[in-house]
Design a protein around this nucleic acid. Structure first.
Lengths: 162, 162
DNA sequence: ATTTTGGTTCGTGTAGTTGCGAACTAATTA
DNA sequence: TAATTAGTTCGCAACTACACGAACCAAAAT
């Protein structure tokens, strides 16, 4: 495979994976930027390179980048004597990936708790069902924490920025 | 707490939990219906009861209910000699909750695979990072499957409709 | 002091989403 | 056969999200 061929395929992949991020609820421009930073061989893009590569406006890039930094997906570095920001993927501890789904599930557990607390008959079929869901989620979160420990023990040699 | 008081609090909870479902991407009307079916003591609502309780139009209710049934969140039953549909929460196996996150993660793993396959230098920092993420997700999915088994073994006395 | 560089913020147009009422359908009842 | 019931579908208006360009700002270069 020639280099040009590879780059063409990479740009194609930016579009497909960008679309998938969109389906998961991320904004179109932010999805494309994140995909770009993951897929291309170049690991640091300047603001101008991003807007040029993706053909988006400065404002769209600015807003999306702010959001991606807030979400901890992207960071930038600078070099002395160079005002440009070099944006790149933020490399967080891999287990951080699960933090969001853990948070969501925790919220769900609390909600089910609130629902059950207001029920007249705690043993009605729906409530039995809700209780099972809650138990399953509690079991899952517990296991998640154990998994995290197990993973960290196995990989304690890695050095990431938190 | 009096019954009226409880019902008032339940209706309030329908609104708060409905809003949370909205934030997760569900449509407003569908969110309210789902919350209603989870929260109120009445376990079966007719179409008319739903539109009356939530003050929504027939069309909005129709569209939202179709969607909720498609998503496997709601089902309806009928009674002989009664044309009305009685909508209620669909009580699926609790571990079905995890199937979606498993699917998502599997997709992610495949995407990272595609990304890595197109890279010029597989050992560049970003790619090391992507590999770690991928490994973590693989480790997690494997564990998930074990968890599911463990859970099913512990709770094999329950009887759900699949 | 003025211009250039590297962005950010604001106001606007456009596309997409949502929910309503009206019109419709299919089954039942009168 | 006509009217009622139980919903569905359609067309439209209101609202929302998004991305653009223009204006703006702060730092550096000229």
């Amino acid at each position: 495979m020639t280099t040009e061929e590879r780059i063409r395929l990479q740009k194609q992949l930016v579009e497909t994976i960008g679309l998938e991020y969109e389906k998961e609820g991320m904004q179109p421009v932010a999805s494309r930027i994140l995909a770009l930073l993951m897929i291309m061989d170049k690991e640091c893009f300047t603001f101008d390179e991003i807007i040029e590569e993706l053909r988006i406006s400065k404002s769209a890039a600015s807003v999306a980048l702010k959001m991606l930094q807030l979400r901890n997906n992207v960071e930038y570095i600078t070099f002395p004597g160079d005002r440009k920001r070099y944006f790149r993927l933020k490399r967080v501890d891999p287990y951080h990936i699960f933090e969001e789904s853990r948070r969501k599930m925790q919220l769900n557990i609390e909600n089910i708790g609130k629902i059950l607390a207001l029920k007249a008959n705690p043993n009605a079929p729906n409530n039995q069902f809700l209780k099972e869901i809650k138990q399953m989620m509690e079991f899952f979160i517990e296991s998640l924490d154990q998994l995290k420990e197990a993973y960290l023990n196995r990989h304690n040699s890695s050095n990431f920025s938190s």
